[in-house]
């Protein structure tokens, strides 16, 4: 029962984040929304697993967390190399950053 409350709350939060994802206005708002959406998904998978009495779902949650992190970094790195606005670092230092 308590899981249903948590699931509804997380789904509502995902819907709200989706609004921000569509509205933008900048690229970074969207990346932030996607990253946040991924964190919500990890929590949702975990709670749904407990709700169904199948905590094995946690394996999928961890995998999703890994992909979410790597994906966010990959998208940011891609757009940074395309140099939007002023680039203040050389590629060498960029490697250390990410």
């Amino acid at each position: 029962m308590i899981y249903v409350v948590a699931i509804i709350g997380i789904l509502a939060a995902m819907a709200l984040v989706m609004i921000r994802l569509v509205k933008g206005p900048t690229l970074y708002d969207r990346v932030l929304a996607v990253n946040s959406f991924g964190t919500h998904t990890v929590l949702l998978i975990g709670v749904v697993g407990f709700w169904n009495g199948r905590p094995d779902f946690l394996d999928i949650a961890l995998l999703y967390a890994l992909i979410n992190f790597v994906g966010t970094i990959a998208v940011l790195k891609f757009f940074r190399y395309r140099a939007i606005g002023d680039v203040m670092w050389t590629p060498d230092q960029k490697e250390e950053e990410s």
């Binding site: 990253n35 964190t39 946690l58 967390a65 966010t72 970094i73 002023d86």
Partner: peptide, 24 residues
């Protein structure tokens, strides 16, 4: 999972903020 999110959460937030700062 908690420890992983505890480390990667701030790291990706920092990466997004840093990319936004670089873009001006």
């Amino acid at each position: 999972i908690g420890l992983f999110l505890f480390i990667t959460g701030p790291t990706s937030t920092h990466a997004i903020a840093n990319a936004a700062l670089v873009s001006g």
